[in-house]
Amino acid sequence: MAYEWHRPLERKWLSFTLFTTLAVIVGGLVLLVPPFFLQGTIEPIDGVRPYSALEQEGRDIYVRESCYVCHSQQVRPFKSETDRYGPFSTAGESVYDRPFQFGSRRTGPDLARVGGKYPDSWHWLHFEDPRNIEPRSNMPGFAFLTTSDLDLSQTSRKLEVLRTLGAPYGDAEIANAREDAESQMQAVAESLRRDGIALTEQNARSEAIALIAYLQGLGRAIQREPMRSAGLAPSELR
């Protein structure tokens, strides 16, 4: 019998298990270990910085609502993609992304370079009801984000954990995380009001503000400065 050699293995559960472990471990070692030593993929490229306190909070909301199930953040190196979304994604851009948000399905468009593509007010109206902006959109409405209080009680702690993992936050940034976030919130709220969005006090401290701050920062290191205010009436934004 050509396969007699296998018989002892079938009779010894421990040897069988060890060989199985060996068989499944090799590929993982080859694929997972070397990238850690490849400098080119580790160093942040020029202009890439850790997220601001408010952007990180916005990012956590993006993760919480699982936006990645419909939006990728990974522009592929094809002309059709760079024409539509902007420069293709590079490894150095996502060094502060925990977790990564490449996504796997574009039910909606890629967001890697959405920062600055639309004014803040566009995002606000779009969250309230995407069909405000585009009647054919199948995105869920996220109106609840425009009224839910943004929780800043953990922000310092979050930045501290991210620093432990390698993000170069200074002591002051961590200590003042809450204040920084609040002042950035005011800036976003002001730009919304400038565009004619009637924000209540509740709206102005809502989670949507943080999410807008996050989205407006996406891809900024490589692309244009963000468009903060359109100087247009909401009706003209549609």
């Binding site: 850690f36 490894a91 996502s94 502060y96 992304d97 925990r98 977790p99 990564f100 490449f102 993992l165």
Partner: peptide, 10 residues
């Protein structure tokens, strides 16, 4: 937060 970042995480 993930122990890995960006493209390693992916």
């Amino acid at each position: 937060y993930s122990a890995y970042a960006g493209v390693f995480d992916a």
